[in-house]
Structures are given as structure tokens and as C-alpha cells.
Design a protein around this nucleic acid. Sequence first.
DNA 1: GCGATTAGTGTATAAAATACACTAATTTTA
DNA 2: TAAAATTAGTGTATTTTATACACTAATCGC
Lengths: 222, 222
Amino acid sequence: MPSCSWDRSLAVTTDIVIFTIRDRRLALLLVKRTEAPFQGEWALPGGFVGPDEGLKACATRALDEQTGMSGVYLEQLYTFGDPGRDPLQRVISIAYYALVPSDRLALRAPAEPQAVGWFALEQLPPLAFDHCEIVALAHHRLVSKLTYSTIAFQFMGEKFTLSELQAVHEIILAQRVDKRNFRKWALALEQIEPTGEERRDGKHRPAQLYRLKFPGRVEIIR
Amino acid sequence: MPSCSWDRSLAVTTDIVIFTIRDRRLALLLVKRTEAPFQGEWALPGGFVGPDEGLKACATRALDEQTGMSGVYLEQLYTFGDPGRDPLQRVISIAYYALVPSDRLALRAPAEPQAVGWFALEQLPPLAFDHCEIVALAHHRLVSKLTYSTIAFQFMGEKFTLSELQAVHEIILAQRVDKRNFRKWALALEQIEPTGEERRDGKHRPAQLYRLKFPGRVEIIR
DNA sequence: GCGATTAGTGTATAAAATACACTAATTTTA
DNA sequence: TAAAATTAGTGTATTTTATACACTAATCGC
């Protein structure tokens, strides 16, 4: 079955589930579609894969063009290609997910002006295409990776406290964790180190700041 | 960047890493290419995704057409799409991996006659395209899943002994495991049950035969 | 200086994983 | 037909890992 049996309407795209922690909730970024199909509805950012463009490069470019973010953690998730997932043409989409530190949520005005916004995962609007399924899979992957990798560290800014790191875990797992056990676990990984500085905010004891020893690196643990 | 910027040479394919246990080794199935590029070289089986064909359906069809096998465990692995991975056209390939029970290795004469054969993973010939990378990733995924799922059960025939199941684990992990601990682990999963029959072979005590309670089902454990 | 608030620390218990050696049943051979 | 050879089958003790749990420390605002 050679490729020439295709008419011109085959397309390959990437879709990106961009997670962050916002207002103590797991949130993701959506864009409002400006074209058919699903015009005016919310969808995952993404774009068509260019003729000489790698898949991850396409996701990186879409991320930059539509949100102004770059240098964030980005990993391939799954490929969706059911015929009929786009009513107008056959689209095969390689889904990625990205994790954005809380200190980099500022959205640059996008190249193609369009509505862009952060939504709490628990309060998403209806999504175009099969994007709801993609989000569900990405969420599942994230929760699962939390328990056997250092992926959550990618949500942290350059400097962070152990309490902040713990809060990120609690938000993603949607359950409280024991403070002493968490700190034991986090420090035993040998992936973070104290900066020597402290963070003071509020009327309480200041907290030691930590940084990643290997920014951008995600270790498989256990 | 709309899809019409593509010329006709975009293609989407699936490639399948078909694992089995053969001669007490982890082995996989390769086909000899009959067309350019890489004509005459060994490659993973696979095929072009049809205009109205789902991705998994494409992999299933390729598996059937090129090897005569059907009904085996099949899971999406990763999508490879570097420009230049095929020298003649832009090809984006969704890789799958399949696990074949040892009692189903008979290869039907393929629809399009071509050389097909099983190769020990440790003694693969040079492979076409980036298939070596695909195999490496599939192998990594398999080893990794072994420790947190019941995936190895998919290598077993309809009836099997605990020693045979243990051997499969030892072959994939490339290390011996303790017999008593392994049996404790395997039985505690509650995924297998005795058939009541015994297997006699050789001059030794016969072994209890077991079967899967839920054939085709892979449980995440731990 | 006292109240409020969050940061920071250790130990005891429970659960899980690991290490380890003999008896049982069968076939072959002497 | 008894002994040798071979693989099947079984339990317990030890180590490691995970969990549960409560108080002191430092700062800010009043």
C-alpha cells in the first residue's frame, strides 16, 4: 500500500499538553481555534509538521509560536491517528507533553494573535477533536511518572523550597504526603542541593532554598 | 503551516518489533526488503497506513500479511519521524511492539513472498533505516515493563508451567531469579490458575500446568 | 514579648523483598 | 528393581524499605 494512494488531505501534526502548577492546582494551556474545524473552540496548542522538520522540533516551535515559552521539559506521549478524529481531513497527531515551572507562566503575545489561557485540569472547557482523550492520557502519564522519576522537579523554578516541592507532589497526586518522609525521599535522590540562601515570606521561619543539580534531567528512580 | 505545503512524498507507516522466546533466547522477526531503499537488507515488518485505516489496525494488518500471525499482544511504542530517516521520502513511522507466544512461531507463507526470519536479539544483522534504534527502545520498554506489569505472560502458550514462566523472565532480564520467590510473586498476582493437568517431559517429576485467567490482559502491578 | 505561622528534624513499627536447602516425583540405567 | 539423575515443589529467617507520628526553631506582626 504505497503512499501514493493518499490524496492531498493527509496531514501530520503535533499536539502539546502543557502542564503547570497555578493557584495550587494542576493547570494546562489551551488555545482558541481560529479556523475550521471546531472554530472558536478550545484546543491543545500544536501545529503541522513541516516537510523538513523533526517531530520534537515541530512541538518546540508550536510551543514557542503559540505561547512564547521555550526551554521547557518536553516528551513524546502517544500518537493519535483514528480516521475521523478530524472531520475535514485525515490527521495523524503525535502528542507531546510539556512541564512549565511556575515562575515562567507569562505568555508572550503569540505570533498569530489568538486567545490563549491557562485552565485548571479539573475545570476544562469542552475540547476540540479527541483532545480530551489526549489530556487524560497525559495526566495519567504524569501521575504515574511522579512515583518512579524526578519529573516533578521540572515544575520548579530555578530556586525552590522543599515545602514548595512537596506542594507540587501533593497537587499532582491529589493527596497529602508526610513532610518528614517526603524530605527524606527528596534529599536521598541527590538531585537537589541547597543554594545557601533563604526565602522569607510571611511571618514565619525562613526556608532554605534548593536548586536542581542537573536542570532538565529527569531520573528514573526505584 | 498548512498540510498543502507538503508534496506527495509524505508517508505514514507502522513498524513492528515482534518479540518471542526462541531457543531460550529473546528473538525478533525481520523481513528482507524487496524494494528501495535498503533493498535486500533486513528490516522490521511494517506497512503504509491506509487512508481510512487506524494506526493499530495498520500494524495488525502488516503483522498478518507479512507473518500470518494474528491475535497477539500489540502495543504502541513510539513515533519516529526524523527528516532523513528514509533517504527517498519523508516517512513518519509509528512503531509498535508485539509479543508472540512460543507455541505460535510458525510463519505462514506471506502474501507478498519475501524472506522472513527469526533472529536472536543479540545476533541481529544490520538493519535498514533507524530500525536498530527502534529495536533498542522496544527492548528497553520490554525489560522495564517486566518489572511492573504482567507483560511476560503474553509470551506463554495456552498452558505453561511455572518453570517455563520463570525461564521467560530470566531470559528477558538476562539474569537468574530465585525459584521460591518467583513462584510466590507469580501466584500472588492472581492472574494464573492451575489447569489440573501435568506436563511430563524428561526423567523427572511432572510439572503442574497453569493458564492465564484473563488471556490478553496485562496488569500494572506494584 | 507573645501569638501566629511555617520550617525543620528522628525514631519506632510495619511491610516488602531477599536469601537460602531440602524433599517429591518421575525416567533411565545398571 | 534399586539406584542415579533430573526437574518440581515448598517455608522461614533476615534485611531492606516504607510508613506513621510530634515536637522545637525562626521569623513577623502586633
